[in-house]
Design a binder for these strands. Structure first.
Lengths: 183, 183
DNA sequence: ACCGTAGGAGAACGCTCGTTCTCACGTCAA
DNA sequence: TTGACGTGAGAACGAGCGTTCTCCTACGGT
């Protein structure tokens, strides 16, 4: 198994465990057990747990935004594309292992102690917001709408994570429709 | 120092430390050091750390909702009372030691491992939502508005916690005004 | 004065976990 | 063949922490 493959396996295990059980309740030994990558190799690839966490968030961010964009790209109509964001949320919330937003959870868990994690969380949220801003601009809507839709999306993520239901996505979408109509 | 006073001191310290640095990075010994309540007494009052965490969330919930209600009660006009919720959020976000929503943070930190904490978080969020529902009903607005305002508020809390700005409150309020107008 | 008890300070225990080290094995170059 | 090196399995180390225990002090009742 070459270095790149070991890295992927380690990140697969890290993502599954960190997201599913929380970062702090997962030990490096658990990551080794799940990934099959030895501790020695793990530490050569990621010199500390914090760096593994950072890499996990970074890779998940790229994939998360890819999947969002892929969903949005199903549509041509600019307003429909904006609403597609909320459709994607609903799809996400319905995934069987959904446990809330990984970045919000990581921030709650490590925001007070790990500046690297905070930076990852802010970068992810800012990227999501920027993407939303572009969709809003492409639809010819005023920029003020971006912040409002963003808050609805964040509220839906938090609430879905706490209640373990998909319903917040639909509620947020309804509110978004009203806000688009009002703008 | 009698039992009730020791309990208050312990909870004061627990709240300050748990909220400020996260639950897991605070040891019972830290709580003893900050509160001046001996370990022996601490464990007589709260037989485990988890129960101390539970009590901390419970007391904070009561106070948080009291302060919200007090703010809302400054106003008579039913619609104004609904918007006052967002004014209160802004005031809260501006407090110097604001570190996001204690329940969202606790859920991110302990949601995967502590059912008691999850129960506290759900109870708190449901109580907030119920309060909002009453304000909406008193203003003669359709019940569907409740969920929308709730998501805006939650989104504002999360975003204020991550960005450390008060701005999300104002944005949420603007969106709330539009939604009230549309209803 | 004397004893029983409550209380505090802090040591001690047992466990977890991040990180490093040991050691034995296999591989490839010269 | 030999020897340097990478690798894996897992022991070892050191720190932190939840929880309990020990010991000493102080006080209240008789």
């Amino acid at each position: 198994m070459d270095s790149a493959a070991a890295r992927e396996r380690a990140l697969d295990a890290a993502e599954k465990l960190f997201y599913g059980r929380g970062v702090r309740s997962v030990g490096m030994d658990d990551v080794r057990g799940t990934s099959g990558v030895s501790l020695k190799r793990l530490y050569r690839l990621f010199p500390s747990k914090e760096l593994l966490v950072e890499a996990y968030l970074e890779r998940r961010d790229a994939r998360w935004r890819e999947r969002l964009a892929a969903h949005v790209d199903r549509y041509e109509d600019p307003e429909r594309r904006v609403l597609a964001v909320f459709d994607r949320l609903e799809e996400w919330f319905a995934e069987p292992d959904f446990r809330g937003c990984a970045w919000i959870n990581a921030h709650g868990e490590l925001g007070a102690t790990s500046p690297r994690v905070v930076a990852q969380v802010r970068a992810h949220k800012q990227a999501f917001r920027a993407y939303l801003a572009r969709l809003v601009a492409d639809a010819g809507l005023p920029g003020t709408v971006t912040g409002q839709l963003y808050l609805l999306a964040e509220g839906a993520m938090v609430t879905a994570g706490i209640t373990r239901t998909t319903e917040p996505a639909a509620r947020a979408r309804e509110a978004a429709v009203l806000l688009l109509r009002a703008a």
